[in-house]
Simulated assay, not measured.
Amino acid sequence: MSVVAWACLIGMAGCSHPMRALVGGNMRIDGDMGVRGDMGVDGDINMNGTMNTVSKPDNTASPIRPVEINAGSGGSKSRIAIVDVDGLLIDRNFSGFGSMGENPVALFREKMRWIESDHTISAVVLRINSPGGGVTASDMLAHQLQHLKETRNIPVVACLMTTGTGGAYYLATHADTIVAHPTSVVGGIGVILNNYNKEDTLGQFNIVSLPIKSGDKIDVGSPERMMRREERDLLQAMADEFHERFIEQVRLSRGDRLVISSDEQEPTIDEMKDADERSPDVDAGDFIPFDGRVVSGIQAHAMGLVDQTGYLNDAVELAANMAGLSPSPALILLRRDNDRAMSEFDVTPNVPMTSILPIQLPGLDRSAMPTFLYLWQPDPSVVTSNGG
């Protein structure tokens, strides 16, 4: 049927008067009915009544469900849940081409709630592949994981994949054990807040900022003017506070396993492996990775940032052993119906949309406010990807 004819039919909804409609064209039906040829309709069509349409407010989201990827052995009903934590950790819904549009914080909470209520899940493996994200978002994820441990008291093993830095490593420190690939990028124990001064750029276009404000420091960090020294000190104090919070968490979680070096020069891996002095009282000046640097998985193990190097199957086997399960336990993923889940390495398509312009100008989009980040940030595009 032609588009015009359909438009005519839709327009007649609720009309009690006859309307003349012409429906022409070729209609072909092949199959068991055995009808093939031309069909024409010429005459009056009477429609009475009301047409009601119902639209689903969210046509993508469905409740998460367990997807079994390994049946396990031994006939036990106990299972291990692999919870994937991927990409930028920001408390906002993502939007982008091919993206699921998920809020990482909300999705993680939904998975934690499922595990809390499903007592067939005897252990959790956090499969982490993330450079980190917002300070608050990272802390919210860690709080939800801590709540799960207090509620269920089941072992949690974090497995760092390609990247486990910043807020992603912060989350990992709340697990019972951390496994990293030998080639993982680990660490990033630091804080960053991206700010830009565009005063000269605006001046080139004769644009002058004329803010009307009450409260002298309400526009601290505005890119429209040079930041004053006392304003920078205010923001620096906040960054230092969040950094110290990160350090305290590492001290609490890994203190007795961190390798301390009082040397001015960075120790070699062999020196760290042979170090005998280990103490929970680690100062920022004594432990090299507290300066925000990243290291390889092998270096992270030598420094005590992770418990062992290995792969995802090693993390699963470790979690099974901690939970008293067989070495080949049943494994599940927690996914939505429209999210593929063929193996434990599948990643939910959830990437933020960056600017559609050929170039990205940091600080240009003021609808995405900057935030303090636990984030390893070698790529400046992450600055404007989703509020960084």
Score class of each variant (00 low, 15 high):
223 P>W: 00
313 N>H: 07
195 N>R: 05
48 N>W: 06
245 R>V: 11
198 K>Q: 13
225 R>F: 07
256 D>K: 10
126 L>V: 06
359 I>V: 15
295 V>Y: 03
150 E>Q: 15
159 C>Q: 04
171 L>S: 02
17 H>P: 03
238 M>D: 15
240 D>H: 10
25 G>Q: 05
149 K>R: 14
161 M>P: 00
87 G>S: 14
184 S>Y: 04
178 I>Q: 02
143 H>G: 09
23 V>Q: 08
295 V>T: 09
7 A>T: 12
328 S>Q: 13
269 I>H: 01
369 M>E: 14
285 G>A: 14
23 V>P: 04
206 N>T: 09
381 S>F: 05
96 G>T: 00
203 G>V: 02
215 G>I: 11
219 D>Q: 11
147 H>G: 13
257 R>L: 12
49 G>Q: 09
68 E>K: 08
185 V>G: 05
77 K>N: 15
56 K>Y: 09
115 I>C: 08
33 M>N: 14
60 T>C: 05
120 T>A: 11
27 M>T: 13
25 G>W: 01
161 M>C: 09
238 M>Q: 12
162 T>R: 02
279 S>F: 04
173 T>M: 10
51 M>A: 12
185 V>T: 15
174 H>E: 05
384 T>F: 03
132 G>I: 02
88 L>F: 15
345 F>A: 13
204 Q>L: 15
25 G>N: 05
320 A>D: 06
